Amino acid sequence: MIKKITFFLALVALIAAAGYIYITKQVEQYITQPLQIEQEQIFTIKPGTSFSRVLADLTEEQYIAQSDIAKLVRRLHPELTQLKAGTYLLEPGLNLTQALEVFKQGKEHQFSITFVEGSTFKEWREALVNASHLEHEISGLSEAEIAKLLGIEHEKLEGLLLAETYHYTFGTSDLDILKRAAQKLQQVLDQQWQTRQDKLPLKTPYEALILASIIEKETAVEEERERVASVFVNRLNKRMRLQTDPTVIYGMGDKYDGNIRKKDLRTPTPYNTYVISGLPPTPIAMPGEASIAAALNPEASNYLYFVASGKGGHVFSKTLNEHNRAVRAYLKQLRSNQ
């Protein structure tokens, strides 16, 4: 009798062991299954989401196969269950365990938004509206209202935000991005203002931003910025009008159709530097750090004029006669390119 009981118990133990091995193997196959994705996918775990719900969501998205064995993962692999809320990037080639490790470590995906140097606040607003996974807090607010929320004393934000690429995680707001851009601009401006040249015709850091924005719109050639700056500084020192087309375009607003006509140069606006003396009232674009540096540390020169060369750069002149010859050469170059 005892032998039969012993045999029975051994048989039960053997069956249990075999069952455990089978279940363990099934769980291992489940958690090592490759994700069924062919391209990068964004996956969000909301706060308070359970481990079982995460597996269910992955199944519903058809990233993993449905299986009753999923409910045993928590018991056999508790180390995989402490997942953090966030938005993650799932890449082709990951298996379920690797994906769970990403969730466990809280490695949230960094989204990015790029603001181009020389862009306007109107263009920034459009970019923010179209950005992925941003909370929208400034929709319906005026520019002046947004400026107030940013703690900026000016009602126009042109020139007061640093154009560059900003990275952010899920749940970041458009206002958060603007705050960072405003802080970075202020840091750059403060630093550059402290190292500015003596005797510049710029009374305030804000005037430096105005000039920097004009430089930004006039040239994209890195090595020309300080020379372009010198032209405007020389003209300001001589009380000559700046006569720069980008200010005319900015003043025209939505009326600008891609062409500037002679009547546009003569039409008064607060920004038309063919009509007004000195700087326009505000920046006309978002300058980059290089243009701010150029405005405050221009090249030492006697240049008063410049015109496009037709080859990507500009020709600089010290006298009006030289400038007129350069203009004729530019027009000739244009005709030869047609």
Rank of each mutant, 00 (worst) to 15 (best):
L160G: 04
S142D: 08
R235N: 05
Q33R: 01
L209W: 03
T219P: 06
L162C: 07
T247K: 00
F7M: 13
E322V: 09
I276S: 08
I23T: 14
L35C: 13
Y256D: 00
I23A: 14
T169M: 02
H323V: 05
F170V: 06
L14V: 15
K107G: 06
L265N: 02
F306Q: 02
L149G: 02
I15H: 05
A308D: 04
E207N: 09
L200D: 08
K318A: 15
I113Q: 02
T32P: 02
F121S: 04
K104F: 11
G48P: 04
V27A: 04
F51L: 03
G118Q: 00
T87W: 01
Y303M: 11
L94P: 00
P281I: 09
R75L: 15
E207P: 08
E207S: 11
L76M: 11
Q183L: 12
E207M: 07
E61Y: 09
A285F: 06
Y166P: 01
A329C: 05
P270D: 11
V102P: 03
G159I: 07
Y22W: 14
Y256R: 02
F232S: 02
V275C: 07
E218H: 06
A13S: 15
Y63S: 05
E322Y: 06
G253P: 04
T87L: 05
A127C: 09
H136K: 14
Y88M: 06
R328S: 10
L150I: 10
E299M: 14
G310F: 12
P280H: 00
Q62V: 10
F170L: 06
N234G: 07
T6Y: 10
I292G: 02
N234F: 10
A70G: 04
E123F: 05
K148T: 11
S213N: 03
I177S: 01
P201R: 00
R325P: 04
P47R: 03
A17L: 15
T59F: 03
S132Y: 07
T282D: 08
E216Q: 15
K46S: 13
S277E: 10
Q194P: 00
A16F: 13
L150Q: 05
S291N: 15
I64G: 06
P270W: 02
K318I: 08
V129G: 11
L160S: 00
I37Q: 05
L178D: 07
T81W: 06
A290V: 12
L58F: 10
A208L: 06
Y305L: 03
P281L: 07
I152W: 01
G313F: 09
A294L: 05
K4S: 15
Q98N: 11
M240I: 03
K3V: 14
E123M: 11
G288C: 09
Y88C: 09
G288F: 05
L9S: 11
F232L: 15
H136F: 12
Y206P: 00
I69C: 00
I2V: 13
A144Y: 09
T273P: 00
G140W: 10
H154V: 02
R74M: 13
E135L: 13
E61N: 08
P92Y: 09
T219F: 00
R125K: 15
E60C: 04
